[in-house]
């Protein structure tokens, strides 16, 4: 059953605006606020029922590692908030195989269940989306 639309817009109006969006996380955790901001965008898109996919690219893959000691930096750990994504019906996550190799990681090391694609598939993936946001 669809959620009541809190904007007061009719479901048809929101349907027409619906575009699929790819959000790219490309910075390591704690580098700046870009990963946190990108996550905020993802959650906001969910409120508008916009379909969102997430790509963790390059150093961005490090955001998905467990056992980060955010308290040592007196910063907030994004991990708990990332775990909320499924509750917002955002469940489409990607990483690139080369980034896994570069950091000697396997998908099991990542806190979200990501699909692994190749560098070649990356271009095709990005082309699938109406909007790509890369902070």
């Amino acid at each position: 059953m669809p959620l009541l639309c809190p904007t007061g817009l009719s479901p048809l109006a929101t349907e027409a605006m619906k575009k699929n969006i790819l959000l790219i996380f490309r910075n390591p955790p704690f580098a700046n606020s870009s990963n946190s901001d990108t996550l905020d965008i993802a959650l906001a898109c969910s409120a508008f029922e916009l379909p969102v996919s997430l790509l963790f690219l390059s150093d961005g893959i490090l955001q998905l590692l467990n056992h980060q000691q955010a308290e040592l930096l007196a910063q907030k750990d994004l991990r708990k908030r990332l775990n909320a994504l499924a509750m917002y019906d955002i469940e489409d996550y990607y990483v690139i195989d080369q980034d896994l190799i570069r950091y000697q990681l396997s998908v099991e090391d990542l806190s979200l269940a990501c699909k692994v694609i190749t560098q070649q598939q990356l271009a095709a993936l990005i082309r699938q989306f109406d909007t790509v946001i890369n902070l």
Partner: peptide, 30 residues
């Protein structure tokens, strides 16, 4: 929800949480 995710939930996750815990009748925005 806040304890677990460090977020105050929006409508969609709140509805989902209610449905999980108290069943479909209470897991509705209405």
């Amino acid at each position: 929800f806040y304890q677990e995710y460090q977020l105050s939930p929006a409508m969609r996750p709140l509805v989902k949480m209610m449905a999980n815990k108290y069943g479909a009748e209470k897991g509705r925005s209405i």
